[in-house]
Design a protein around this nucleic acid. Structure first.
Lengths: 170, 170
DNA sequence: CTCGAATATTTCGTATTCGAAGTTCGATAT
DNA sequence: ATATCGAACTTCGAATACGAAATATTCGAG
């Protein structure tokens, strides 16, 4: 690490891209994908530390965020598993813990009794809100090198990518 | 899911951002960060499926990629743990498996016998190369909505973010 | 109406991960 | 020289995750 500390993050990134290109990747693709992963990797590290203050793991956060984004709509354990990228069986235990802590509540779906509906409690909403405000600090710091127009341009380009995301596996 | 299928990924994304903003996040920040995570989440799903063909987990891939990016330089288990965002103790077992499979090799550092030096074998390099070429397919598909100039612009903006990444925790 | 297939969740055994303690080696101060 | 502190890796027990089988309910075909 100390040896690499002399090189700027830019140079490091450029060298990484070169490695992928040498292995058979396309330059214009690898430049973007490698950069995206460099950002999320750093963000993930910060989230772990930030959320530790709130006694929240990344897995629990993903459940909290999914339910918050769903708004009033309740979600099933299966949907939460999909949204969190984990196996359904893993979600069972995660929800056990979180409901035991009073963050979420489970209730049977009256119209289909094989289903269980999960929703945030008041405490769950409060924790979500606290987590958003905490993480916004590091996220904002992450983007401090970009002007407001640049942020909008970056968001615009990423949103184009998102738009085509669901069509790829088809 | 079926209910949400009518809404475009754009609208879905905009609603998610609105949720974070309502909880106390800044709009220009949340638009970018949420989009970045939407992209990596989808990519992660594809990686799992693609790498299954090569009998490779994401954890093993992160080791392979870290060693490949290091080039000729050997890395220690601690460095690999840092680069892979896992605990050192987890890396021990992971390297056991991978060296048993002939992908990496461990050898003692002559200058400091507390250290172990890890490097890719020929098979490890071959698997890395195969994985890059496989993943380049979906990565390329992911960016197909962007023109070449747009990809460069996206890369440029992300690289500005990367440049400031290491200064944040200070 | 009933049987069989499909869906949703949970249970269970195995594998992976983490954090803490243990072990070995290197560096520094006395 | 040696004693102590720190660094690097591993081992161990607990927690978490996964996949397959088990359970319960719904839906459709005959």
């Amino acid at each position: 690490m100390a040896a690499k500390r002399r090189r700027s993050a830019q140079q490091e990134h450029a060298a990484d891209v070169a490695t992928y290109v040498a292995a058979g990747g396309e330059e214009s693709v690898q430049r973007v994908i490698t950069a995206v992963y460099a950002v999320t990797k750093k963000l993930d590290q910060w989230y772990v530390r930030q959320f530790a203050d709130l006694d929240l793991t990344q897995g629990e956060w993903s459940v909290l965020a999914a339910l918050a984004r769903a708004g009033d709509t309740c979600l099933t354990p299966s949907q939460l598993a999909d949204l969190s990228n984990v196996a359904p069986s893993s979600m069972t235990h995660r929800l056990d813990k979180m409901s035991g802590r009073g963050l979420v509540q489970r209730r049977p779906d009256e119209t289909n009794r094989t289903r269980t509906l999960v929703s945030l409690t008041t405490d769950g909403w409060a924790l979500f809100s606290a987590a958003v405000r905490e993480s916004n600090v590091v996220e904002s710091d992450t983007l401090r090198g970009l002007s407001t127009p640049e942020r909008h341009e970056l968001a615009r380009l990423l949103e184009i990518v998102i738009e085509g995301l669901d069509d790829v596996d088809a």
